[in-house]
Write a protein that binds this DNA or RNA. Structure first.
Length: 811
DNA sequence: TGTCTGGAACTACGC
DNA sequence: TAGCGTAGTTCCAGA
């Protein structure tokens, strides 16, 4: 039993409206910053209100009442961990913000992970769970989150035969470990860790295995190296036995129940146990091993997810548990070889630079676990240097990847200048790279940080995020893939944050803080591998849209760090979808008089003569209240353009704008994503609708303007919400906030120009969809950082809820 | 030779 | 339960 970051246990189950652009970012009137605990502790608890002064976004360490913070310990994951039981156990008197009694918190039992417990790790000298929670009170199954072993989440027998080293990236073989481990990464500005740098061709398990992992029995595994291509590794073949020339394609194909969950395991399922924990759910993944010092929030996220899903599932509520036989009986034979420090990129500070407490032993392990994925890139003038200010980036309070971070704050704005193409065929691990994501007009996407006048370079982080109706978060089935080669001009660097591969790209002042992202591809992970991860509830089937999510952390003079984030337009990554599904890139109108009749030109792909355009009005629960087929001008129909006549709305007497959706249908199951259009009252002044382009601001009546983006943005969750009454949507629970009418969509890729900081609060717009509840952080800068636990609220068993008073503000 | 890319075969799943 | 369509995954081949 080892210490577990208790900060994972905090349940940010407070529901706030949030403001997020359709770019997946949230505009912020104030700095979204991360401050030392001292700042946060000074913040009095209070209602989340946008008018509040800048609040410290420092969930982990800044929360008054949080043990770690109270103890005045240094910021870090260890802070809350040291807090003792309070972080784990929910007071029986604890009441959720919405008034609902909190469920008794499940406990998490962390199985000892041999070789990883180390006194130097701040995690491991903390209070152990076992010390806090009597074993008798621990649910035997539900709350027991096995520590991850090094088993891949995919069937080793289906290891990537990819010949491309570059394709063996994050979640290829090596990625299996990433799903279980995290490591602090080297960042030019932030990370005190050097870049993991291991020969991608390392194949010798024994040589490559970190010592600590050896304790897990992995060294004895007959399994092959994760970095060893099946095409080249005789050893692997020998271990795996003869593979068919065409391996049963979806080795772990799963049957989906009505709810998409696995009903049964195919007999063809790989005998290889799936990874035992979801990186997004398992405490063991994110927190236990990983983000020891930097991403406490991720740990919390993982814990919340784990408790809100896994626990529920395993508590016997009838929800099938996604699990296969675990890897207890077999471990992947992986080749993990730690390269000499500083090799990567030449300028990465060697590990030895760091104090022991900065680099817990398992960091080496972690690093080694992923070394295979790190490929050398051409030297670049920009050097990945040690962070100039440890306080600015060693902060553990950087937002987790699934936190909603604004794209603009103060003078700064992170903006996608060139959006990626709406289609990019992701490659599998078994394939070679399919190249970098490109821009529609050629070239590559570019991102620029505006308002930054310093001479210090920054790091642009890139990861693959979701593009569904829920809050932006790292995509479980896709990972960013670093592209290298002659055609790549941008230096990049890989890191793993909370089981998500992050590409780090320098933002250089000499380039006007602009980066051309020509080094980012997209790797597709097999659905079966991901879905079978413990606690993973997302399904990969037809979940093929992603977004590029860019982040930058800007050190502030006061020692805080300002984080900005912006997400690209959705990218369809499926080959089939790209070939068959209609895609609406642009629409010429974002609104229309209620009586309809207006012509609208749709631009996109895969339009057919018999394509239909269906307008629908959705109820909050998703049901269609109204449907109408628009008249299409077949004569003007082209594969990439479609002219339709907007049908009249069902109710011609509306008094306020009503947003509806529409999609192009090429036949059964061949529908485009929803686009949006706003019906205006007959007597309402006409809102001029200009031909849309990717940067055209949306109209003010909801995400209808999203239709201007190549793909519709999530309807409820990703927008910027400006409630008419700022407080009306801040009540606990899901308020009857007029989301649609109050939603303002910023122009794609440009942040939140329409954002009204004075009235906006960050909340969750997906309430009606019940996708999850919010975890809310109140940043010191006054901006509420919101995250969503992407799990159904209804089955939330109630993780230990110890909301930091200063961070979670019940209304 | 290695990478990128398009296409299609193969398999599993759902209806 | 078989057939069919759809979707995911893998492989092939050419640029």
């Amino acid at each position: 039993m080892t210490g577990l970051e208790e900060d994972q246990e905090f349940d940010f189950d407070f529901l706030f409206e949030f403001n997020q652009s359709d770019e997946g970012a949230v505009a912020a009137p104030e700095h979204y910053s991360y401050a030392p605990p001292s700042i946060g502790t000074a913040l009095p608890p209070g209602p989340a209100h946008p008018s509040l002064p800048a609040l410290c976004h420092d969930l982990q360490s800044a929360a008054p009442g949080m043990p770690g913070a109270a103890a005045g310990q240094p910021p870090g994951y260890g802070g809350p961990v040291d807090g003792g039981p309070s972080g784990y156990l929910l007071s029986s008197s604890h009441i959720r913000p919405n008034g609902a009694p909190a469920l008794e918190s499940p406990r998490i039992e962390i199985t000892s992970y041999m070789g990883l417990h180390h006194g130097n790790n701040q995690f491991f000298h903390d209070v152990e769970v076992g010390d806090v929670i009597p074993s008798s009170k621990r649910p035997p199954s539900t709350a027991t989150l096995n520590l991850p072993n090094l088993e891949a989440y995919r069937d080793p027998s289906c290891l990537s035969p990819a010949s491309s080293l570059s394709s063996r990236s994050c979640n290829s073989e090596a990625s299996s470990y990433e799903s279980n481990f995290s490591y602090p990464y080297a960042s030019p500005q932030t990370s005190p860790w050097q870049s993991p740098c291991v020969s991608p061709k390392t194949t010798d398990p024994e040589e490559g295995f970190p010592r600590g992992l050896g304790a897990c029995g992995l060294l004895g595994s007959p399994r092959h190296s994760p970095s060893t291509s099946p095409r080249t590794s005789v050893t692997e073949e020998s271990w795996l036995g003869a593979r068919t020339s065409r391996p049963s394609s979806p080795c772990n194909k799963r049957k989906y129940g009505l709810n998409g969950r696995q009903l049964s395991c195919s007999p063809h399922h790989s005998p290889t146990p799936s990874p035992r924990s979801s990186p997004r759910v398992s405490v063991t993944d994110d927190t236990w091993l990983g983000n020891s010092t930097q991403y406490t929030s991720s740990a919390i996220v993982a814990a919340i997810n784990a408790l809100s899903t896994d626990s529920t599932l395993e508590l016997g509520d009838g929800v099938p548990v996604k699990a296969r036989k675990t890897a207890l009986d077999r471990c992947p034979s992986v080749a993990l070889k730690v390269e000499p420090a500083g090799e990567d990129l030449g300028a990465t500070p060697p590990t030895s630079e760091f104090l022991p407490e900065e680099v817990p032993p398992f960091q080496h392990i972690r690093k080694g676990a992923f070394c295979d994925q790190y490929l050398s890139v051409p030297q670049h003038p920009y050097q990945w240097a040690r962070p100039r200010s440890p306080t600015s980036y060693a902060s553990p309070s950087l937002p987790a990847l699934d936190w909603q971070v604004p794209s603009r704050s103060g003078p700064y704005e992170l903006r996608i200048e060139v959006q990626p193409k709406p289609h990019h065929r992701a490659h599998y691990e078994t394939e070679g790279s399919r190249g970098a994501v490109k821009a529609s007009a050629g070239g590559h996407p570019s991102v620029q940080l505006h308002g930054y006048l310093e001479n210090e370079p920054l790091t642009l982080q890139l990861f693959i995020g979701t593009a569904d109706d829920r809050l932006l978060r790292p995509h479980a089935f896709y990972q960013v893939h670093r592209i290298t080669g002659k055609t790549v001009s941008t230096t990049s660097h890989e890191a793993i944050l909370s089981n998500t591969k992050v590409l780090e790209i320098p933002l250089l002042p000499e380039n006007n803080m602009r980066a051309i992202v020509d080094c980012a591809g997209i790797l597709k992970l097999r659905n079966s591998d991901i879905e079978l991860r413990k606690g993973e509830t997302d399904i990969g089937r037809k979940n093929t849209r992603v977004r590029l999510v860019f982040r930058v952390h800007i050190p502030q003079p006061n020692g805080r760090t300002l984080s900005l984030q912006v997400a690209s337009n959705p990218i369809e990554c499926s080959q089939r979808s790209a070939q068959e599904l209609p895609l609406v890139e642009k629409q010429s109108a974002a609104s229309c008089p209620v009586l309809g009749g207006k012509k609208m030109v749709l631009s996109g792909h895969n339009f057919l003569q018999d394509s239909k355009v269906i307008f629908v009005e959705k109820a909050p629960d998703g049901h269609h209240i109204w449907e109408a087929e628009a008249k299409t001008d077949r004569g003007l129909c082209k594969p990439n353009s479609l002219v339709v006549e907007i049908p009249p709305f069902r109710n011609p007497r509306i008094t306020s704008p009503v947003q509806v959706s529409f999609y192009v249908c090429n036949g059964k199951r061949k529908r485009s994503q929803y686009q949006h259009l706003t019906y205006l009252p007959a007597n309402a002044p006409t809102i001029k609708t200009e031909p849309a382009d990717d940067h055209e601001p949306a109209l003010t009546c909801g995400p209808g303007g999203q239709g201007l983006s190549p793909l519709p943005q999530p309807r409820f969750s990703q927008q910027l919400v400006v409630p008419p009454d700022p407080g009306s949507c801040l009540v606990a629970g899901f308020p009857p906030c007029p989301q649609r009418s109050a939603v303002v969509s910023p122009p794609p890729g440009t942040g939140q120009e329409l954002h009204d900081p004075s009235s906006a609060a960050y909340g969750k717009g997906t309430a009606s969809q019940g996708h999850g509840h919010l975890g809310l952080q109140r940043p010191a800068g006054g901006v509420l950082a919101v995250r969503e636990t992407p799990r159904p609220v209804g089955v939330h068993p109630g993780p230990p809820q110890q909301p930091p008073p200063a961070l979670l503000q019940p209304q």
